[in-house]
Design a protein around this nucleic acid. Structure first.
Length: 364
DNA sequence: AATTCGTGGCA
DNA sequence: TTGCCAAGAAT
């Protein structure tokens, strides 16, 4: 086949892999999305705000992050402010956003940056990667977006876009290395931060997991996945194990003055360091009240409230039955007695707020 | 390398 | 109702 053959359609130069970034950037410029951490065109990004937003955005949607981000930067405008804040204040402000280890690492990272560099973030991937809570993705994202470094940024959006454009059929997570190689071939030296955000925006708005809008995609002509009719099916993923159900009894313990007993969870593990309604351990077998009594915070006439509190974590379902009881004058217990109207002052994760709501509805 | 980490929106 | 999914990190 020669170039003079009318059937030969030369691949436009703009569709060569090294030029796809140009198409993405021009699409990005035409469809710029406003987010509170993004610099305006021509402005320099604030590394503190980029870092804070990237940590919040780990496995979390933009819509969920925005109000938390606003709250954090209003209360702690610089990394020095955040470093000086009590950890409890940070956990409380984070409550509801999930993955609470992020909040602890955020605070630790702020203190590290404050101590080492007086509040100046490192600007290389290698140095960023050493900070607590900053992994491969986040280091690359900060380096690219805040410092203009041509880092290869690979998040879930990039994985999906690359898998489709290059028709990568190997399932994730095995395909990660292959996908990163593709991503590296597209990463430009000019405007790498905008490019990274362009791919992520594309994945969030057009190259979506379901019903991708291929008809208006700036990469449509280059997308091998689409040409093969398999774009929506990519990326392939390994099967996930099914989620078990765990059960427990939570103790809604009240005092004569109406205060409720709370306690702090262990620093590590599920809901680490957060405040909870005391409960039995969470196990697969159902609990009878008799089984649960030795786990109660004190001896009392516990009564089971009708109904259940259901909550789903990443890897299991939880069903909590709530038992209500009043502490006697002689009983001692460990924990934190909190008036009902002060429950909001504590770092209660969502599952525990559900327990509170249920108890308030059923116990009075 | 495989698990363990939350939560809310969506089909 | 159920499962999937989201700008992943730590161990």
């Amino acid at each position: 086949m020669s170039q003079h053959d009318p059937k030969f359609l030369p691949e436009p130069q703009s569709l060569r892999p090294e030029n796809l970034s140009g198409r993405l950037l021009s699409w990005y410029d035409r469809n710029r999305r406003v987010m509170p951490w993004r610099a305006l065109p021509g402005e320099l990004a604030d590394p503190y705000r980029i870092w804070l937003s990237e940590v919040m955005l780990q496995q979390t949607t933009v819509a969920a992050v925005i109000p938390y981000f606003q709250k954090f930067v209003e209360r702690w405008p610089t990394v020095m402010d955040l470093a000086q804040a009590p950890l409890d204040d940070v956990l409380h402000a984070w409550a509801g956003l999930g993955y609470y280890a992020r909040a602890r690492n955020l605070h630790k990272c702020a203190q590290t940056v404050a101590a080492w560099r007086g509040g100046v973030f490192p600007d290389t991937e290698e140095a960023l990667r050493k900070l607590p809570g900053v992994g491969e993705y986040t280091a690359a994202a900060i380096a690219a977006i805040a410092f203009g470094k041509p880092a290869v940024v690979v998040d879930g959006n990039v994985e999906r876009v690359m898998a489709r454009v290059f028709a990568v059929t190997e399932p994730l997570p095995r395909a990660k290395r292959q996908i990163k190689e593709h991503a590296a071939t597209l990463t430009p030296r000019e405007r790498p931060g905008d490019y990274a955000q362009a791919v992520m925006d594309l994945g969030a708005t057009i190259c979506t997991p379901r019903n991708p809008a291929c008809g208006i995609c700036p990469l449509m002509a280059a997308c091998v996945g689409r040409q093969l009719g398999m774009a929506e099916a990519l990326p392939a993923k390994e099967e996930k194990p099914e989620r078990p159900t765990r059960r427990g009894i939570a103790f809604w313990a009240t005092r004569k003055d109406g205060a409720v007993l709370l306690r702090r969870r262990p620093e590590v593990g599920l809901l680490g360091g957060m405040i909870e309604i005391p409960s039995t351990p969470w196990r697969e077998d159902k609990w009878s009240l008799e089984d649960a009594l030795p786990e109660a915070p004190f001896q009392a006439e516990w009564r089971l409230l009708p109904g259940l509190v259901r909550h789903t974590f990443t890897h299991f379902h939880l069903e909590l039955v709530v038992a209500a009881g009043k502490i006697g004058p002689a009983a001692l217990t460990r924990g934190l007695w909190v008036p009902l109207d002060k429950l909001g002052d504590h770092a209660l994760p969502t599952v525990m707020r559900k327990v509170v709501k249920h108890a308030l509805l059923k116990a009075y």
